[in-house]
Design a protein around this nucleic acid. Structure first.
Length: 521
RNA sequence: GGGUCGCUAGCUCAGCGGUAGAGCACUCGGCUUUUAACCGAUUGGUCCUGAGUUCGAAUCUCAGGCGACCCA
């Protein structure tokens, strides 16, 4: 409501009139609040410690009672109580107490200095002797007790969610630890992170529709990358034996609790390795970062206990499908036979699935996937759905590929990479035909990538891990939007009305005196 | 793409055909040990948007917007 905002603007002006700037330049806290809480846990109730501390943060709650007041101040590490005693504050500066209690609102950022005192009720507090306004908030905080319950508002105004929800802060803190932990683990093992282009002429490396954009100066249509795979492989051709890239991927797809159009992956390539090596790498890497982030490899996800201690279960797709629905796809001689068997089991058969291998994959999705709760490597995929993976060393029609499933979700995908340039060309051309036939997710032919393979690529193991899904797992988050700070949402319908409000606000600000921080003055 | 649910004060919510409500926040007054402080008074509304039904719509109907969840 603009009334609340007007009141706060008036308070900002009142501060200026008193010689207190509502927006400070800098401030030097001596401590974080959590460090104080920990270091002075032994301070008895009702006693004071003769130590000068300076803390800064956001005022979360105010309790004013005449000549004494208590505020809760929160910095990134957590809260601490401010003990505001009129006699102490006004001893140094007349009016300081009443200014503090009338011109500082919940939501403002302030800095205080004072000594430490534990109140009679046992709350460690900074007994404030002086205070500084650091940033005057014009908007009120959400309800201090209920917080921000509106899920949509939590996503649209994540800053509010972060201010009032410690749990949300912890989620993004853990995500940051996860990302840095993965990089550190790989760096320590000699992997180099090399950045590859986001803007590409030929999207490749995955089956997905890309976002399309345009380069003006070159008058060139471009797409945002749907994978980092083909460029990282070029780097392996170039002689880097261990490379990775952790970064943003863009796929022009729907939004769900498991999909955001932009998401984060890490792809890892190791020369002279195969998919067996990548399985080991995957479980070691994920177990290590889980231990760092969660303190244990035994975690709980949405009420289910998950054990990420290696080694993890390994089973072929054929075995898992047979166990789940009794269908032995190794015995299926034709698509027709496989389709009939699936329909007899009550499974859905898509007309787009034009081979035994694609039907196997559909049967897997329908009968197995959701039940793979504990970490499971699913091995040996049909070649038709794996155009970049090497043919299996002993199983015709299959490739050396695994996907990792945890809590029913695909979390990683890896191959013994296909390095035979002739085979690769045939596979991509076959993809191209599907594309021409209307499969918008089928890959195109990247001639430069094929050229690179012809120069000679060492046998290589490659791996991709979905960082967002891993973050969901390690933060016990039900939706991918809970682990993406600013998930994609449609613009609000009421944007016009709000825009007008903001325009008024800017105009109002311009009416205030000329900026005193102009260096020319 | 289909289904279910939601959208009312800054926040959290009630109201479900008859004057638009509560708690917190805000404003004012009181209060030197509170921590969802308390006590008293006041203020605050495009009931998501539009159309329809009706003497009368936040409430019923239809269409649309945004979101959540489930299914594909």
């Amino acid at each position: 409501m603009s009334d609340l905002r007007e009141t706060r603007l008036e308070k900002a002006e009142a501060l200026r009139a008193l010689g207190r700037q509502p927006y400070a330049l800098r401030f030097g806290p001596t401590h974080r609040t959590a460090a104080l809480q920990e270091a002075h846990a032994d301070l008895p109730n009702g006693e004071e410690r003769n130590l000068e501390v300076v803390v800064a943060g956001r005022v979360m709650t105010r309790r004013v009672m005449g000549k004494l007041a208590f505020f809760t101040l929160t910095d990134e590490s957590g809260p601490i109580q401010l003990y505001l005693d009129k006699a102490t504050l006004e001893g140094l500066e007349p009016g300081a107490f009443s200014q503090l209690t009338t011109l500082v609102d919940a939501g403002d950022l302030i800095g205080v200095s004072g000594s430490l005192r534990r109140t009679d009720r046992g709350e460690l507090s900074v007994k404030v002797s002086s205070w500084t306004m650091l940033s005057k908030a014009l908007q009120p905080l959400p309800d201090k007790w209920h917080g921000l319950a509106d899920v949509e508002k939590r996503y649209r105004q994540r800053y509010l969610d972060l201010i009032v929800s410690p749990h949300t802060r912890e989620t993004f803190r853990r995500r940051a630890l996860l990302v840095s932990g993965i990089r550190r683990w790989l760096d320590e093992r000699g992997f180099l992170e090399i950045e590859t282009p986001v803007l590409q002429s030929v999207p490749g490396g995955a089956d997905a529709r890309p976002f399309e954009t345009h380069h003006n100066a070159l008058d060139l249509p471009l797409t945002l990358r749907i994978a980092t795979e083909l460029h990282l492989k070029r780097l392996v051709v170039g002689g880097f034996e261990r490379v990775y890239e952790l970064g943003r991927i863009f796929r022009n797809e729907g939004v769900s609790t498991r999909h955001n159009p932009e998401f984060t992956s890490v792809e890892v390539y190791q020369a002279y390795a195969d998919y067996i090596d990548m399985m080991e790498l995957t479980e070691q890497l994920i177990a290590a970062v889980c231990l760092q982030v969660c303190g244990s490899t035994a975690i709980t996800y949405q009420g289910t206990a998950i054990d990420l201690a290696p080694p993890w279960r390994r089973a072929t797709m054929h075995e898992l499908v047979e166990q789940a629905c009794g269908l032995d796809f190794t015995a299926m001689a034709s698509r027709k036979e496989a389709a009939a068997a699936m329909e007899a089991q009550g499974l859905q058969v898509s007309p787009l699935a034009d081979s035994v291998g694609r039907l196997l994959s559909e049967a897997f999705e329908q009968t197995v996937e959701a039940n793979l709760i504990q970490p499971t490597f699913v091995l040996d995929y049909p070649v038709e759905i794996s155009p970049l993976a090497r043919p299996h060393r002993s199983k015709p029609g299959l490739v050396e590929r695994f996907e990792l499933f945890i809590v029913g979700r695909e979390t990683a995908n890896a191959f013994s990479e296909l390095i035979d340039p002739i085979d690769q060309r045939e596979r991509l051309e076959s993809q191209q035909q599907r594309r021409a036939a209307g499969d918008l997710e089928a890959q195109g032919v990247d001639e430069d990538f094929l050229q690179a393979l012809e120069v000679g690529m060492p046998p290589t193991g490659g791996l991709g891990i979905g960082i967002d899904r891993l973050a969901m797992l390690l933060t016990d988050s039900a939706s991918i939007r809970d682990v993406i700070a600013f998930p994609l949402l449609k613009p609000e319908g009421r944007a016009e009305g709000r825009g007008e409000g903001r325009a008024e606000g800017r105009a109002a600000l311009r009416e205030s005196p000329p900026a005193s921080h102009d260096p020319a003055q």
